[in-house]
């Protein structure tokens, strides 16, 4: 079995930073990724709050830059999906779809994926009007009317992005105020192509071959109504990609991995960083910070365990 000092599972900003710190500390480091390096940054149009980029940076560009920096100091990269962990031996074993891999210290940076709405029609029309990636699909909706569901940063920022293509975006939010950052909220409230429906939830996504309408309900008045739309973009939060971490306890009710402030999971030498970790603020900058902290403690752990 291939053995490394450190295996980092996931190459989003947390994993890429962990690999950067670990390889720069001359540890033999493997970066595992099942998709594209950069993680959720790849489906983000513009990142405005990562320090060092005063004019903002596109998600794909920042992904490519972070990957280049992570690999510069000799971290190895492999495409594989983690399926399970074996943590009882001296070495930590990551079981993947392309064989087992072993390491002294393990850094879990597997991130999170968009959470579905869970309403009727959502699964049926996925790819036929229901989307979770405005950057991927916005251009198809030129001259169309679309709905965006959610009230956080992602929902509002991507709704604003969609207004560049569409005739109108309706933002459907279940509360009477947005959770998004103030500056983003101000932009949304001032944007002529964006209409916000407050206190409103989606009951069903309707259509024939493709999405044609959403049926909605006002949670305060109980009134139900329908809006004609050609597409529905869903931004209602995240689900952690922690299915392969079942051997790790405890995870939170929602499946996030619990750690201490050193990113340690409670099992010595096993760390969790970024969006998969239970924490308050999930941002590129906090993911990067987690990665640096975990790699530094992993190095300390490896050095001490060899004494």
């Amino acid at each position: 079995m291939d053995t490394y000092d450190v295996i980092v599972v996931g190459a989003g900003p947390a994993g890429l930073t962990a690999a950067l710190y670990s390889s720069r500390a001359k540890l033999r480091t493997l970066l595992l990724e099942s998709g594209l390096p950069g993680g959720q940054m790849n489906t983000t149009n513009e990142i405005e709050n990562y320090p060092g980029f005063p004019d903002g940076v596109s998600g794909t560009e920042l992904s490519a830059l972070m990957e280049r920096q992570a690999l510069r100091f000799g971290a190895e990269k492999r495409t594989a999906a983690a399926l399970g962990l074996e943590l009882d031996g001296n070495l930590r074993v990551v079981k993947t779809d392309r064989g087992d891999l072993a390491c002294r210290a393990l850094i879990i940076a597997s991130g999170a994926v968009p959470r579905p709405l869970g309403c009727p029609g959502e699964a049926e029309f996925r790819g036929r009007g229901v989307s979770y990636c405005a950057v991927c699909d916005a251009a198809f909706y030129e001259g169309c009317r679309v709905a965006v569901v959610g009230g956080g940063d992602a929902a509002v920022e991507e709704a604003l992005y969609l207004t560049r293509f569409t005739t109108e975006v309706i933002l459907i939010h279940r509360r009477d105020s947005l959770r998004a950052t103030k500056v983003v909220q101000d932009r949304a409230l001032a944007c002529p192509g964006l209409t916000i429906l407050w206190d409103t939830v989606v009951q069903e996504i309707q259509g024939k071959d493709q999405v044609q309408a959403v049926s909605l309900r006002n949670v305060k008045t109980g009134q139900t109504f329908t809006e004609s739309v050609d597409g529905v973009f869903v931004y209602v939060g995240l689900t952690p990609s922690s299915g392969f971490c079942q051997t790790l306890h405890p995870t939170s009710v929602l499946g996030y991995v619990k750690t201490d402030e050193n990113m340690c999971t409670g099992i010595p030498g096993v760390y969790a960083v970024g969006d998969v970790r239970e924490k308050m603020l999930r941002q590129v900058v906090t993911a990067a910070s987690d990665g640096a902290i975990a790699a530094t403690h992993a190095e300390k752990y490896i050095t001490e365990s060899l004494l």
């Binding site: 996925r126 790819g127 990636c133 699909d137 198809f140 071959d209 493709q210």
Partner: peptide, 24 residues
């Protein structure tokens, strides 16, 4: 070709669409 989302894969036999993969 009624493709509104990426990625999408369409399959043709004898010039006719016989299947498509969209979504997840």
């Amino acid at each position: 070709l009624k493709v509104m989302s990426l990625p999408s894969f369409l399959f043709f036999r004898d010039g006719q669409e016989v299947a498509r993969l969209q979504g997840k």
